[in-house]
Nucleic acid binder design. Structure first.
Lengths: 210, 210
DNA sequence: GGCAAAATTAAACAAACGTTTGATTTAAAC
DNA sequence: GTTTAAATCAAACGTTTGTTTAATTTTGCC
């Protein structure tokens, strides 16, 4: 299914960024073609349509997400809290490395009409839940985690916080403290800060310790 | 500045819903006109343009948000934790009562290009922060709240979780447990559940108690 | 009733949209 | 070198877009 040429991948990455920045309908195929430096017709030629291009963007990133989840499942040597920490760490990294795609996903999940893309998001959410729930419930049965935890909403807290961080970036950056910090360094700083915040939150709510 | 006729308000509310459901560019003025049962020209006639209509939607909801914030500031008889609880309660209610607008705000804050609407969102965020920070820092000085709290990210957690709840609604609802619960009752159930989750989170992280 | 302002309408506007066409170039295979 | 398929292109396609026009109706006031 995969195996994109350099040109095709260029289109996908440009589309990802523009869809994230301006929305699907706010981005014209001419915008994409111009920024990706290809002829307009190539988009239909390669992907069939603008809609299908959006799906291609999603499939491209979501296969990576699947691998990502599987790695977490396979690594079964850690204790529950370490597992949660690792999960938080990796999600934080993923989110801030894939800011455009995460914005796009945040946008698309709000659409009211059903679509193949919404189905993909739903699947991914279900898989994430299937990853998280067993870790927590097993630890609860072992008495390591407390029981009065709303796992579904805790996932909403995790993803909600991470999604919120992207638009909050410019807000946090407006602090003169970060005035002349290069953008990539600021992102690295953010990763550490966000991950620490989330770990503290999860530890407190799950173990009642600090 | 306010004082909309019934017809104008009808347009604003329809636009709010459609912008939230399909995005600004995904919604045509013809869609709005049809659902609001007015002639297409009335939108330009009343609001000037589609863009200005979006701004009108924002101004309409945000004046209410300002009042909302001021009420919280004025009510100064509570202790810090009660204040946080009240804040969580009211934000949860607001979020689930204004789902369309909150979706819309979530969408618009992601746009890359500056706009009057983005400025409004920025202002509101700043005001929210100005409300939250004094409550927490004062309680920290009094030794009631712990100091190792990232207030900015805690706000991201609050709004992120709440924003995430709207798209998560259908996910939670898919549980057979809620199969034949009327939608408004389900929303009331959600309010209680979300508010309880957030209070637990805030109490744990701020007071180290449960 | 008559008048002026506001509200409402159908129709038309140019611009932008996603997509397709048909011709042309490039690449690969024999 | 010829042939065949893939890639690329400018141009044009028919829609849909947001907005405006100019005519008509409704409204409020004297």
């Amino acid at each position: 299914m995969e195996g994109y040429s350099e040109k095709q991948l260029g289109i996908i990455l440009v589309a990802e960024r523009l869809f994230a920045d301006k929305g699907f309908h706010g981005t014209s195929v001419r915008d994409i073609a111009q920024e990706a430096d290809v002829n307009i017709a190539m988009i239909s030629y390669y992907f069939g349509s603008k809609e299908k291009l959006l799906e291609a963007v999603f499939r491209y990133r979501m296969t990576a997400s699947r691998v990502f989840i599987q790695e977490l499942v396979d690594n079964d040597t850690m204790g529950p809290l370490e597992k949660i920490y690792s999960l938080v760490d990796r999600f934080t990294n993923k989110m801030l490395n894939e800011q455009h795609f995460q914005c796009l996903m945040n946008r698309e999940q709000m659409n009211s009409e059903p679509s193949p893309v919404k189905d993909l998001i739903w699947e991914l959410k279900t898989e994430m839940m299937g990853l998280m729930v067993p870790i927590v419930t097993r630890a609860q049965e072992q008495g390591i985690f407390y029981k009065d935890v709303d796992i579904v909403l805790l996932m909403s807290t995790l993803f909600g916080t991470l999604h919120q961080v992207v638009p909050a970036k410019s807000y946090i950056r407006s602090d003169p403290e970060f005035a002349n910090l290069p953008d990539d360094e600021f992102v690295e700083y953010l990763k550490i800060r966000v991950s620490a915040h989330l770990k503290k939150l999860f530890k407190a709510i799950l173990t009642h310790e600090f």
